[in-house]
Computed example of a mutant assay.
Amino acid sequence: MAGTVTGMVAYIKARIDRSTLKAGEQLPPTSALMKQFELSESGVYRGISLLKAEGYVHGKQGRGVFVSDRRKLISGPQRINSGITQQGETIDHKSSLRIPAPPDWVAEHLGPGECVNRVRTVNRDDLVLQASQSWVHLSVAEFVPEIEEPRALDPTWQAVYQDRSGLTVAVASKTVNARITSPEDREALRLDHDAAVLVMRSVYMTGNTVIGVGEGVYAPGHPIVIG
Rank of each mutant, 00 (worst) to 15 (best):
Q130W: 09
A131Q: 01
S132I: 07
S132Q: 11
Q133I: 03
Q133D: 08
S134A: 15
W135D: 02
W135F: 10
V136G: 01
L138A: 05
A141S: 15
F143R: 14
V144K: 00
P145D: 05
I147G: 01
E148C: 02
E148Q: 08
A152G: 04
A152W: 04
A152M: 01
L153R: 02
T156H: 15
W157Y: 13
Q158F: 09
Q158P: 10
Q158K: 11
A159M: 15
A159G: 06
V160M: 00
Y161W: 14
Q162T: 12
D163S: 03
D163V: 03
D163K: 10
R164G: 08
R164T: 10
R164F: 02
S165G: 02
G166H: 05
G166W: 01
L167P: 06
L167E: 14
L167I: 07
V169Y: 04
A170G: 08
A170I: 10
A172N: 11
S173F: 15
S173L: 14
S173T: 13
K174S: 07
K174P: 00
K174A: 09
T175C: 15
T175Y: 04
N177C: 13
A178H: 03
A178P: 09
A178R: 14
A178W: 14
A178K: 14
R179A: 04
R179H: 02
R179K: 02
